[in-house]
Design a binder for these strands. Structure first.
Lengths: 93, 93
DNA sequence: TATATATTTAGACAAATGTCTAAATACTCT
DNA sequence: AGAGTATTTAGACATTTGTCTAAATATATA
């Protein structure tokens, strides 16, 4: 959970997520969208992978990244839980 | 949006949110739940306030903090948008 | 007014983070 | 095997972040 929030706390990583939302992309394709170096992008991708936000598969010399959308479910639940202030005797408290 | 994600990226701040979910609390009450110093808690509260996650009102010598739950709506929307991969010709793309 | 309490501000400091370049690794194709 | 391409790893470095103590501010009350 902490890794997930940390991962989303950086604008570049959120942009990467928005890119992958449209289609799977290789590390190089992703890097081409940014003005920072490929190693830096590689590092961001690593953090996203650690947070389970993206998955990667190696295809020949390329590494293709894709969104793992299921991880967001847990986050939506947390955030919605927070926006639902605790009441006396609600279902789950 | 960035401030919001940043704010939630720290475990102490998320714990503060969970406390305020139960009831409004003064800065001192909040601080009592943690083993870190009051100035540090004050700083966390400041970041949460900047991110619009909490509101504060001064009541005499106390400052009472409360959750601003509306800010989470925007976040839920973002996260749900991300978990909903782009399709051809869906409603909003 | 003086003292105690609640909170924030200021400034220092170590650790974490985001970035870079250079080098290493892995794969493709002559 | 050798050269070119894709990606990651290693290590350095500046900035940001989370923490602390000391001091400042604001309020309450004797």
């Amino acid at each position: 959970m902490n890794l997930l929030f940390k991962a989303l706390g950086d604008p570049t990583r959120r942009q990467i997520i928005e890119l992958l939302r449209k289609r799977d992309m290789t590390a190089g394709e992703i890097a081409d969208y940014f003005s920072i170096s490929k190693p830096s992008i590689s590092h961001h991708l690593d953090l996203l992978r650690q947070a389970n936000v993206v998955m990667s598969i190696k295809e020949g010399q390329f590494v293709t990244y894709s969104l793992n959308t299921t991880v967001f479910d847990e986050m939506v639940k947390w955030v919605m839980d927070m926006s639902d202030k605790k009441e006396k005797k609600s279902k789950k408290n």
